[in-house]
Design a binder for these strands. Structure first.
Length: 776
RNA sequence: GCGCACGUGGCGGAAUGGCAGACGCGCCAGACUUAGGAUCUGGUUCCGUAAGGAGUGGAGGUUCAAGUCCUCUCGUGCGCACCA
């Protein structure tokens, strides 16, 4: 995953994944593969903007400085990136395509018949809609990018709205600031239309179980039924969602969320005061208080009763904040005998508890939530008694369906993606707002030809006094000659990172976001490259922190582009590996406040890039969380020293060191006088020597296939330790060993006189190579 | 509470069900050195002078054979968290 170039510079965690993929890239190139190994910058974001607010300096300047720091540091590590493919999400030539992809979403709808996104031009509009406004509203309500007025997460401290995924325990993911619920007009992306496919296709990709599980939990599919309840003495019907329709006979009361639309009309005169008071109280609670802090159940009786459709029982309707307005239908049937939350509530308010499921073993039926056998579940019309839970569910659902009062349904926790932010340093939307003759305001996409939409220059990057996004300050930019106005929100940082891996494939294409042939070749669908086994990116390495953000959003965009025929694979990343966090030497997470941050520049200065690379890989398995240990760096540094002396005559090395110290200007001359070990001869290897070499080749090859870099390095250490003791060192054996070492430690492996052994070439390398090793 | 990982020397960590502790750090002893925080050699799981014994968080089980597989249990990390 490409980095956000922060002002703090590279962290030792960044090169962990980068080293792993660089080693693998060099290894695959040596095997004859074409390898695409790129780097870029996820450079929109808040820090540069906040710095701009404070100092008035344009975020472009800060961003460029940070990128050049990151680039210098990354280059010094000797990664074999193809810099001709470098991307920067804040570059107009990049974000014009981010805007273009947004327009594809805007101009698409999900066809329920085909299960695929299609251009809105294919959307059938009911003939009954005759006016232009009606027809437009119909289409707008079905676009994959749409405008919503719903309550959203607002963060006062950050001065912007946030997506569900960016809110953790009622606080902002960035900076842990409090967030509140606030109704605002916002752009949304219809990711929920892809919930089923995002879930299903996890089975086709090679990701870790824990990561897939996180995505599954976030998508949160649950299968059950909707059931309609009549309200006594009223026309209104209450629809609930339940995963346990088989327990319908045990429903002894109902609960609506306090925000439920029917609450005011259901409430009886006698209960009105209590209900209003409760609703008021709940609305004042922050979300944090509603979830974390209130363990004790609360609620109020509305005075109304519903009729249980299976047995005609009259059951009270309550409101309680343990029922969420935003999930399912915002109403539940409560079965206290077999649901923990309902049980707690029933205990507190002395509501009846009726057993309808018998556990198989000796467990107490009260509060039993597992599968068992249905009991006490019979009426004149239907009986579930004696049926196992799955059969009982099936039977009752069919019964409800037959009567038109219920249906099998599937619910998802996943919500649509809130896609707009009140920021300056982000992609402007290619959207304008128009007021028509009747005074109605509507949005309209700008044509492709008007891309890129570039943000205007500003003197002040703060939101306006009346709470408008910063872009609203640029009146001349916002107001267009025809009287329409530009959208002043910008896209979230995730937008640019949703598709950068595609831009790498064809980074300088000015006619298309990625060329079709190029895309098919690298993603493995062109058929001309039989060596590529998987479809999509072969290996994607990054941290777990993006498990439900970047990785879900990117999969969603990719599927939309797939449906519309712009990419050839249904999934973007075939194999994904999460590198484990690197902790400080004290075993704590690295942070400035703890003072345990290791700066890669310091390590490089002392030990060189090869030792740094080697140590990062030798610490332990890539995926594991592990603490940094400077003495461990010394260990691999000593290994590189031993390997160097395996090849180099120590006398000539000493002459180089002493000569250079005395007469620095003659360094090149002394360098070229460094001689090979006299024990290296052009002789045939003994069988024992070949065995040592071949064991090393086998181990390193197999371990690289399995991404076990730490054990591959240990195998090379074993080889060096043994070869040091050989009285005669066959040149052919050492040359083969260098081929193995080169992906890990490219600088030393290509230094003279080692290069006399014709190691494989590699793209240009910068950084401290010999200079860091010369004083071994 | 639920889900997913994971528990091995002083430390980081190795071990297709087949000699536990590879490799590295640290430590101990020695060599070379004016010097050593360089380098080289040997040693280093624990108990025991030794012979020998014990040993992969704990308790059971499967197996000719278990760090590895199964059950329970304790602990750590990560994720989700009133999602009906």
């Amino acid at each position: 995953m490409f980095p956000y170039p922060s002002g703090a510079g590279l962290h030792v965690g960044h090169p962990e994944g980068y080293t792993a993929t660089d080693i693998l890239s060099r290894f695959r190139r040596a095997q004859g593969f074409n390898v695409l190994h790129p780097m870029g910058w996820d450079a929109f974001g808040l820090p540069a903007e906040q710095y701009a607010i404070k100092t008035g300096q344009h975020p472009r300047i800060t961003t460029n400085q940070n990128i050049s720091t990151f680039k210098r540091q990354i280059r010094s590590l000797g990664f074999s990136y193809d810099w001709s493919r470098e991307v920067d999400t804040t570059d107009v030539e990049y974000f014009r395509w981010t805007q273009w992809i947004f327009l594809q979403l805007y101009n698409a709808w999900m066809n329920p018949k085909t299960g695929r996104a299609e251009p809105v031009s294919s959307l059938p509009i009911p003939a009954s809609l005759t006016s232009e406004d009606e027809r437009r509203a119909y289409v707008d309500a079905r676009r994959l990018a749409y405008v919503s007025e719903a309550p959203v997460w607002w963060c006062e401290a950050l001065g912007t709205v946030l997506a569900n995924e960016e809110v953790i325990d009622g606080k902002s993911e960035v900076g842990s600031h409090p967030v509140t619920r606030k109704p605002m007009r916002q752009w949304m992306l219809r990711i929920t239309a892809y919930a089923e496919r995002l879930l299903e296709d996890l089975n086709s990709i090679d990701w870790s179980d824990s990561l897939k599980e996180m995505q599954r939990n976030w998508i949160g599919k649950s299968e059950g039924a909707q059931v309609e309840f009549k309200v006594e003495g009223a026309e209104a019907r209450i629809t609930v969602f339940t995963t346990r329709p088989d327990t319908l006979f045990g429903a002894t009361y109902m609960v609506l969320s306090p925000e439920h639309a029917l609450v005011p009309s259901l409430t009886t005169a006698a209960q009105r005061t209590a209900v209003e008071a409760y609703r008021n109280e709940v609305s004042k609670k922050s979300d944090l208080e509603r979830t974390e802090l209130s363990k004790e159940k609360t609620g109020v009786f509305t005075g109304a009763y519903a009729i249980n459709p299976v047995n005609g029982a009259r059951i009270p309707i309550w409101i309680a904040d343990y029922v969420l307005a935003t999930y399912g239908t915002g109403a539940i049937m409560a079965v206290p005998a077999h649901d923990t939350r309902d049980f707690e509530f029933a205990q507190k308010f002395s509501l009846p508890v009726v057993q309808v499921v018998a556990p198989r073993g000796t467990e107490d039926w009260k509060g039993f939530t597992g599968d068992g056998t249905a009991v006490n579940s019979a009426s004149a019309d239907v009986s579930l008694d004696g049926l196992a839970t799955p059969e009982a569910k099936k039977k009752i659902t069919q019964w409800l369906e037959a009567r038109g009062i219920g249906a099998k349904t599937t619910q998802f926790k996943l919500r649509d993606w809130l896609f707009s932010r009140q920021r300056y340093w982000g992609e402007p939307f290619p959207i304008i707002w128009k007021r028509n003759a009747s005074g109605a305001v509507s949005h309209q996409a700008l044509p492709d030809a008007s891309l890129p939409v570039v943000p205007p220059p500003l003197d002040d990057y703060k939101p306006t006094a009346d709470g408008q996004p910063p872009l609203a300050r640029a009146q001349s930019w916002v107001s267009l000659p025809d009287g329409s106005n530009r959208e002043t929100n910008t896209m979230p940082q995730w937008a640019g990172s949703c598709w950068y891996y595609l831009r790498y494939l064809d980074a300088r294409n000015s006619a298309r976001f990625v060329g079709a042939d190029v895309e098919a070749y690298w993603m493995g669908t062109s058929g001309s490259d039989s060596r590529k086994a998987s479809k999509g990116v072969d290996l994607y390495v990054g941290g777990t922190e993006h498990a439900v953000l970047h990785l879900l959003y990117a999969r969603f965009w990719h599927k939309v582009l797939f449906d519309l025929g712009f990419v050839s694979t249904p999934e973007p990343f075939h194999k994904l590996v999460n590198q484990g966090l690197i902790l400080g030497e004290d075993g704590q997470k690295m942070s400035k406040s703890r003072g345990n941050v290791v700066n890669p520049d310091d390590v490089l200065k002392e030990f060189g890039a090869d030792a740094f690379r080697l140590y990062e890989m030798f610490m332990g398995p890539l995926e594991m969380v592990k603490p940094w240990n400077t003495q461990g760096v010394e260990g691999v540094y000593r290994f590189l020293g031993r390997t160097w002396r395996l090849f180099v005559d120590e006398g000539s090395e000493t002459r180089y060191e002493q000569g250079t110290a005395a007469e620095p200007h003659r360094e090149d001359e002394f360098l070229s006088a460094i001689a090979l070990q006299s024990s290296i001869r052009d002789e045939a290897a003994t069988s024992a020597q070949l065995k040592t070499l071949h064991a090393c080749i086998k181990k390193v090859t197999e371990d690289l296939e399995g991404l076990r870099f730490n054990t591959a390095i240990s195998a090379m250490m074993v080889f060096t330790n043994e070869a040091m003791n050989w009285p005669v060192k066959p040149a052919s054996v050492l040359a083969d060993f260098l081929v193995l070492l080169q992906p890990f430690a490219p600088h030393i492996a290509e230094e003279p006189p080692a290069s006399a052994f014709t190691p494989p070439g590699s793209p240009d390398i910068d950084g401290p190579g010999l200079s860091a090793l010369a004083d071994l």
